[in-house]
């Protein structure tokens, strides 16, 4: 009797493990891989593969992950950096990503792109998934999910993404099978390379100012980012990336300048540093002024890298492993650039 019961329990455990295994396999298959068309979704996950303690961490939306090249920063100034950016990343997502980062390492400088101050609400469910699914499970991730979820979303679907992406069986592509078990890195320390050139032909009209002052929640999280940096003795730098649109209003600029002044933070608005950075909107953008291409990103990295190196105390790296890492990264980087 006892033996039979034990047999049943063993069998139940075996079946449970098998079911879990199938579940994981199915989940891996059906989850978007972000290896082909929408690579932005892969950025957050790739951070955990980056070795060593980074000197500089960038936070923000597409204006960050397409505006700086960590490979150039390393080559030119020996700065070991990582871009923890994501598409339409909201400021609370930036904050929780920073908490997540600080659990792994404490950098010397954190650079935050202020464009996300315009979003007092989650931008869309799809962007939530791209910014949050790649995060490793931690208290920070749970808080990020809770703060970001739209009404239609459930926490359970983050815990088991299969519940969200179950319907992708209709649209499975060869990429899904290729990267079923293991994905490749598509970014260069969080930098998403764009090699195309689409010159600016018409400067877009100023978009109407829908809200003059930033939402309270944005200030709340900006304060949180600032305090977290202070507590960890990390220099916080604010920046606005060079981009012709979405339009950066004067009213917003004043508020950021006022905030930076109030708390003694450095603030760089690259929109006003066109001459200094050398950005040429005829050849340094791949989408007519919305984002920079690799040429623009390298120019901006050279300019900002110098500031970072001269103005802030950054570590000197003699690590052979890191050198090797960047050598391999550079090789892949150049290959993609040539494409």
């Amino acid at each position: 009797m006892r033996r039979q019961r034990r047999k049943k329990i063993c069998l139940a455990i075996c079946f449970l493990v098998l079911t879990m295994g199938i579940f994981v396999l199915l989940q891996n298959l059906l989850m978007p891989k972000y290896m082909g068309a929408i690579k932005e979704g892969a950025l957050v996950r790739e951070y955990y593969d980056s070795p060593g303690n980074h000197d500089v961490i960038f936070l923000g939306d597409c204006e960050v992950y397409e505006s700086f090249s960590p490979v150039t920063l390393w080559e030119e100034y020996g700065i070991h950096s990582y871009i923890r950016g994501g598409p339409s990343q909201t400021i609370w997502q930036s904050y929780y990503l920073l908490e997540d980062t600080f659990a792994k390492e404490i950098p010397e400088v954190v650079v935050f792109n202020v464009l996300s101050m315009q979003h007092g609400e989650t931008v869309s469910e799809a962007y939530n998934r791209m910014n949050l699914d790649g995060m490793r499970w931690s208290a920070a991730k749970i808080s990020a999910i809770r703060q970001s979820m739209t009404e239609e979303e459930t926490f359970l679907s983050y815990l088991f993404p299969l519940l969200r992406f179950h319907d992708r069986w209709r649209e499975l592509e060869p990429e899904d099978y290729k990267y079923w078990m293991k994905r490749e890195n598509v970014s260069y320390n969080g930098y998403l390379m764009q090699t195309g050139v689409k010159p600016v032909t018409v400067v877009p009209e100023k978009t109407p100012l829908t809200q003059e002052t930033f939402s309270d929640i944005c200030y709340e999280y900006l304060d949180k980012i600032r305090r977290l940096c202070e507590e960890n003795k990390v220099e916080l730098v604010l920046m606005k990336a060079p981009s012709l649109y979405p339009y950066w209003h004067e009213e917003w600029e004043e508020q950021i300048e006022e905030y930076a002044e109030k708390f003694g933070l450095d603030y760089y608005n690259f929109l006003e540093l066109k001459e200094e950075t050398g950005i040429d909107y005829q050849m340094d953008t791949y989408d007519a002024g919305l984002h920079l291409n690799v040429s623009g990103a390298e120019k901006l990295s050279r300019y900002f890298g110098k500031i970072l190196k001269e103005r802030y105390t950054l570590s000197e790296h003699q690590d052979q492993k890191l050198n090797q890492y960047y050598k391999e990264l550079k090789q892949r980087y150049e290959e993609e650039k040539r494409k």
Binding site: L30, S157, H166, D167, W169
Partner: peptide
């Protein structure tokens, strides 16, 4: 019996009409 249970479970999970967009 396990195949039947697992088959049903996973067919609901994958082919079920639930979640965002439904």
């Amino acid at each position: 019996r396990y195949l039947i249970l697992a088959g049903l479970f996973f067919s609901i999970l994958v082919f079920g009409i639930y979640g965002i967009g439904y």
